[in-house]
Design a protein around this nucleic acid. Sequence first.
DNA 1: TGCCGTGATCTGTGATCACAGTTAGAGTTG
DNA 2: CAACTCTAACTGTGATCACAGATCACGGCA
Lengths: 232, 232
Amino acid sequence: MNLPAALNLVEPLDRQTLGERAYAQLADLLMSGRLAPGEKLSLRAAADVLGVSIMPVREAVSRLVADRALEVAPNRAVRVPVMTAAQFRDLTKVRIAIEGHAAAEAALHRNEDDLAAIARAEAAMRDESEKSKPDLPRAVELNKTFHFAVYEASHSPILVEIIRALWLKAGPVINLDLRANPERLAKGDAIRFHADVRRAIAAREPDPARRGVAADISGAAEVILSRGGLAD
Amino acid sequence: MNLPAALNLVEPLDRQTLGERAYAQLADLLMSGRLAPGEKLSLRAAADVLGVSIMPVREAVSRLVADRALEVAPNRAVRVPVMTAAQFRDLTKVRIAIEGHAAAEAALHRNEDDLAAIARAEAAMRDESEKSKPDLPRAVELNKTFHFAVYEASHSPILVEIIRALWLKAGPVINLDLRANPERLAKGDAIRFHADVRRAIAAREPDPARRGVAADISGAAEVILSRGGLAD
DNA sequence: TGCCGTGATCTGTGATCACAGTTAGAGTTG
DNA sequence: CAACTCTAACTGTGATCACAGATCACGGCA
């Protein structure tokens, strides 16, 4: 081991296997809502698009199936699960409990770097949504960045991982709806809640942080539920 | 479809694919602590034991890797992750928060059937652990049964699923330790906490239920941490 | 005797083939 | 013109083969 030690630091910790990359791509598709609930996904077609054989896609899909982000129907058809209103309510309740808890933990354990990252993410999203013609996909991405900046500040990798899995499930429903009805973005609810959350975390106040995140989540959920586009 | 309709009800909802069965077997091995942290797992060897080709094992393993219940080292070796003390503390904190929350929800939403299942599970574990020579693997299984009877009473499938994933991570550490040092079982801490939890849920008192589960989890965790067998 | 190079044998990853089951569409029949 | 049937083209699942990289033990050199 007489190599320049600096190289060891640059070395990426995650193995760049094809299956990993396929997983990342599919997960991003789900989180950003570019895959609609009920949409079918062919392994071979996906493999064609990604330019690999079906093997890496199979691995990625089986991971997503394990997380219930995809499901394979008894007819052997892989698709994005269609969520009933009851399931969506359950998911929302769990998200409020867990993401709210993460925000509270963030308020307790955040350091200055976390705070800077959260402020940066909040500013970026505010700027984008105050534009006269906001870039919707970008806004979705910035929203994700803000939320996870908060959750990362809890310094609990396990919590962050759980929330990631929740977003995988919620993404198709929420962001698909947002794409269809972008007016909520202009209403500025999210922007206000984000500011509340940032302030609470800066002030080390766990309960207001929890409430801010809860309001953000339930606000978006209520819009979707009131639209009545969900099954059952 | 002129078959006896009753058969459709018996039909298991989960497709009985070989990969599914391999996953179930490996998951059970992990939860019950029969796979120790750091232990390596060869795909081909496992496939041999299960009597199938490596394909179903690959699917099962990639699911477990997605849940962080297994990890593939940069050397391409699949093994049970070795947990540092810090990681175990994080896991314990998250478990207390989430499983405590589930118990509180159970107190609010349980029905009589849930209550009966919880009481049955509690009695079974109490009987087993009060024996002069308790069957350890059976006690581990009964402990799991009791906890999940509680969590199921929350009537939140998503919450239960998350907790399952947490147990997959905690199983190797906790149950391996229990196998090595069974005296804690005789001490009866768990038995007492279980009774507290059952009573609280029966009385529809969320906070005592949460505290009971939290005490159970942190009690077991402290024993393990004080033993000092964890890395770092 | 101690150390280093080297090859056989493992590892997981990826591709390809085989198969049973489903689906959809074309062709035919009523 | 509508409905039914049958076939052809899909679907995921499983097995097998090929490959690059890591590990480890054996043998040769210092």
